[in-house]
Amino acid sequence: MPDVLETMFFAMAAESEQARAGDDALSVRVCFRGSPSGCFGLKTDRSTLSTLGAAFLGKLSEDEMTPAEVAQTACELANIVCGSVLSEAESDSGFDLDEPAIDPGAPDENGSAYSAFFELDTGGALEIHFRFAELEANPS
């Protein structure tokens, strides 16, 4: 997880048991199909997403970030983090990721098989959560 932030979003993350995203945080759900299948949740403060998104897009200031870009940053971050973790866990087998979606009901620390919490040097916190389950076959 930290290398994703460092490589593409130019932020450093340190794992911290106490770190939690605040009340205005955005949650994203990304479901995945493979072995195992399940859903991933990423929760981050909006202000943190503005900072990360501005760095990702090469904007001079986070004030230039539109609400749509903040949401897209959350989705892309979730997509990359989820894909990186699964690539390491399933180094041979391959998986499919659904389109990331902003979803307040995305997996959180209640009932997740795996959770991790990070503090960012840009300020704010980031949570990741994995739930494993058999999903219905992808309709597409």
């Binding site: 290398d3 989820c82 399933e90 041979d92």
Partner: peptide, 27 residues
């Protein structure tokens, strides 16, 4: 350009005609 860096996916995409592969995140 994909987050999926599993061997199986890289091989499949190559067999389908992809000439290169970059894993996200990338420098």
């Amino acid at each position: 350009v994909s987050t999926d860096a599993t061997r199986q996916r890289m091989d499949t995409m190559q067999q389908m005609g992809a000439q290169g592969y970059i894993r996200k995140p990338f420098q």
